[in-house]
Design a protein around this nucleic acid. Structure first.
Lengths: 347, 347
DNA sequence: TTACAAATTGTGCACGTGCACAGTTAAATT
DNA sequence: AATTTAACTGTGCACGTGCACAATTTGTAA
């Protein structure tokens, strides 16, 4: 049987209460007694019984979540899935979630969302700090109150000792795409990078992916050009955009879609898509369909659901298991093709 | 606050003890009272408090593990890692592991290993049932005693209601390899499948992989031939084997290594390896080196550590969380290249 | 020395469950 | 009707921790 407080107390010749005061640093213990107890604790290798501790605590730890709503971009359902998954797994520890969604296009809604969590008196916060300035204010508020904050997807500008980051290495993802193009396209290789959709606050990620791709092909004779399509709805807009681009930069055989909008591209180029090797990001259902129909060769999954899972786990480790995780945690990248699709997403 | 047994008792107008008897089906309760209590339970939505339950249980759940020792084949360290990982994660639930390794080449050692677990009075068993006949006896022993058994890597011949299987879909892995070859090799494609090492009991997996590959290329003009190299140590043996094979079957440009021995092949063909697209299995450190040095193009990871993790999780779900998992659980396949390697393995 | 405050240490209860055992009621037998 | 037996129901304790409060010891000033 494991060592308990009672064992420590007996061995040190004091009562449970005194041992308890030492363990929780609540003072009012004579220095030599404290010393003695600490010795016994390390000697016997006492480990707090989390089960009993959690039972007596009898208050639910509340984790606040501030994420973009997935109605606007299905990508954001994925981290939320991971959060719910981890939550379910550790629900027996009496934890609660308070979720506030915000609107991707609206900084004000982000502010409202995190302030909503302030009201809920959360014990920890998980946030996608897309809006850097507002994120700073959010970070300050919680850090001042010693409330740990985990940033998912995007890091904070200036992390502090209360903040964590769980995300993926976009630069490496770009390099990965590079090799996949290299292997699957007969030379000469010419790649068109596309950003589809409104200008967002995720430019940093796109830049890193581009940089990774370029660095992969460094020194090799590969044409890389970039195109930004801001008009989401217009299929013709996309087609003419590409046509104009070819006129200017010549033809290409690889298409690198820097965000989760691969399916938009596939919808527009349905007829001539065989001519290109298409690589995109994020395993949302629309992109899964693209793999199934061979409209995309590879989807690189940056494992957003694992990011969500890991964010929750980091908080539990910190607040319940007394285990400190790394301040920066990268989640592995997955290369997905049609055949590896089955159960490819995080369970 | 959550509903407790006390709440149920009060609402049903009985004592805690009676409610307890109903919950645990321990009989000695009048039928109409039992009915009443069951109604109240579902009405109020009572959920057992696992924390309190586990605290009072005060006995450690012991999980037996019977796996091949990794000294012979580094592959087998991976499922064990996953088992340890999950074990650590749920250690707070007062669980124990009893590990017995066996020798891959020796059926007798497998029997000894599982009998060792019988002695330890385990509450559940995780086993790699490589030896089918002996595995049957093992399965019978534990099933007769209502002890759940999880087979990892290889399923039992005839699963029953006490057995689970956690593994990966080798057929799908073969298909995956097919597409990767298809994408990365200019036609005409000619693939050599190799099994390196002693004849083992894992033939089923190899067959499925081969079948998957063949089915992927069905109807296409692709040459597929197979070679078995039984002598592990001999580098020259491997080289002459391949040479002879070329003489008979003609040249090839893709090499499909059906087990984890990619690194053996790379060691032997170090000089001329550029000429082939090499795809192998399992992310053991030796194969990681092959990716790093471009000796292998792809490693398909069947996620053995997640298999181990999931095996433990399945047991905990069953014995603690009262959640019944699927009897057959496939773990996702991961395609790994040099650039996606970083943190590619299961955390 | 006595009185009183301050510092230190000990004790009891609660958390929710599971189980043993005590207590109560109803049915069966004499 | 009295007694025994069976069927059912209620109560108390334990698990290990955390906290409030009671009890004790030590220190200080009159």
């Amino acid at each position: 049987m494991a060592i308990t407080i009672k064992d420590i107390a007996a061995r040190a010749g004091v009562s449970r209460g005194t041992v308890d005061r030492v363990i929780h640093n609540r003072g009012n213990v004579a220095v030599q007694v404290k010393q003695k107890i600490e010795n016994v604790i390390s000697e016997l290798g006492y480990k707090r019984n989390i089960i009993a501790s959690q039972l007596v605590a009898n208050r639910s730890l509340t984790i606040g979540v501030v994420l973009p709503h997935f109605s606007e971009d299905p990508y954001w359902a994925l981290p939320m899935n991971g959060i719910n998954q981890c939550f379910k797994e550790y629900k027996h520890l009496n934890i609660k979630l308070t979720v506030s969604y915000f609107n991707l296009a609206n900084e004000q809604s982000f502010i409202q969302a995190y302030q909503n969590n302030m009201l809920h008196q959360v014990d920890a916060l998980i946030v996608a700090p897309i809006y850097h300035e507002a994120a700073d204010a959010c970070q300050d508020y919680f850090s001042d109150r010693n409330i740990p904050v985990v940033a998912v997807n995007t890091p904070f500008n200036s992390p502090n000792e209360h903040t964590f980051f769980v995300g993926s290495n976009s630069y490496q993802a770009g390099k990965t795409a590079g090799r996949l193009f290299d292997m699957s396209i007969a030379e000469p290789i010419s790649i068109l990078q596309i950003k589809i959709g409104k200008q967002t606050r995720l430019e940093t990620h796109y830049k890193l992916k581009q940089q990774g791709l370029e660095d992969y092909f460094e020194g090799k004779d590969v044409g890389i050009s970039t195109l930004q399509i801001t008009n989401l709805a217009g299929k013709t807009h996309l087609l003419t955009g590409i046509k104009n681009h070819i006129d200017k930069h010549g033809p290409f055989n690889g298409i690198f879609i820097l965000n989760s909008k691969t399916y938009r591209f596939a919808q527009a180029l349905k007829d001539s898509i065989d001519d290109y090797t298409v690589i995109g990001f994020d395993l949302i259902s629309e992109n899964i369909d693209c793999l199934r129909s061979n409209e995309a060769a590879f989807i690189i999954d940056q494992n957003p659901s694992l990011q969500g899972y890991q964010a929750v786990k980091t908080i539990l480790d910190l607040l319940i298991f007394e285990k400190l995780n790394n301040a920066v945690q990268y989640v592995p990248i997955h290369i997905i093709i049609k055949e590896s699709l089955e159960q490819a997403s995080f369970a």
